[in-house]
Simulated assay, not measured.
Amino acid sequence: MTPTLRTERLLLEPYAPEDQEDFVTLFQDRRVSQWMGDGPATEAEDRALFGRIFTKVYAQDLFDVWAVRRNGVMIGHAEIKPTDVAQGHEIIYALVPDVWGSGLGRELAEALVSYGFDALGLAEVYATVAASNSASLAVLSRIGFEHARDIAEDDGSTTRVLTRRRAVQPTGQE
């Protein structure tokens, strides 16, 4: 079951059915959706996606997905899930454009990485980012992600695969 996470300014909690309109609004904003998955989808597709969070993801406990809130208002979406792209777990997040540039992306990404390392016991976490998404690439670089490889997409664009490895804890002296 997806747990509730807290950061200094954010609350990450499982979606509730009443979050549907905020979810659809976030995913219908082309400034956001251009960077998500295969890009912008129809409103009907985003509503179906929201439904699958409950009927598939939560019902089958497939992976963790959260509504991201600040001061009680939903401002984003976050996930950490298995990915075939890197044979590991990938973080995915999106925030409403009104909060871009405020440091919340970095705070959210750090929370997802920490959850992956601490709660899921992962040795590394991945992110896939469009090569043209310089803002997300900069955020991830600042929190320790490194370029692993590029994927040439069918549409001619490039997706960067980034990785962050868990810091090795020093062992006691023998």
Rank of each mutant, 00 (worst) to 15 (best):
A119W: 00
V125H: 05
T128E: 05
A109T: 04
G103W: 08
L108H: 14
S102T: 11
V113C: 02
S114G: 06
A119I: 00
G103Q: 06
F117N: 00
G103A: 09
V113Y: 02
A119E: 09
E124W: 13
V129R: 11
S114F: 00
G116P: 06
A109L: 03
V125W: 06
L112N: 04
G105Q: 01
E107F: 15
G116T: 04
E107M: 04
S136H: 14
L122N: 03
D118Q: 07
L120N: 00
G101N: 06
S132E: 09
A119F: 01
Y126V: 09
L120M: 07
G105D: 02
E110G: 05
G101C: 05
A127E: 12
V125S: 02
E107R: 08
S132D: 11
Y126A: 14
V125F: 05
G101A: 05
A123I: 01
G101H: 03
V125Y: 06
Y115C: 01
S136I: 03
A127Q: 12
S134T: 13
S134P: 07
T128A: 11
F117K: 00
L108R: 09
E110H: 10
F117R: 01
N133K: 11
F117A: 00
A123F: 06
A130Y: 14
G103C: 13
A131Y: 13
S102H: 14
G103Y: 07
Y115H: 15
L120P: 01
E124K: 08
G121Q: 06
L104M: 15
A119K: 00
L120Q: 05
V129T: 12
L104R: 11
L120D: 02
G101R: 11
A109M: 06
F117E: 01
Y126T: 12
G116N: 03
A127C: 12
A135H: 10
L108D: 09
S102M: 11
A135P: 07
V129P: 10
S136G: 10
N133W: 10
G116Y: 02
R106K: 15
F117Q: 00
S132R: 14
S136V: 04
E107H: 14
E124P: 04
Y115L: 01
D118C: 03
A135F: 09
F117G: 00
L108S: 10
A123W: 06
G105E: 04
G103H: 12
S132M: 04
G121N: 12
A111I: 12
L120A: 01
E124A: 13
D118G: 04
A135L: 05
V113Q: 01
A111V: 06
N133Y: 14
A123M: 03
L120W: 04
L120C: 02
L108K: 15
E110W: 04
S132F: 13
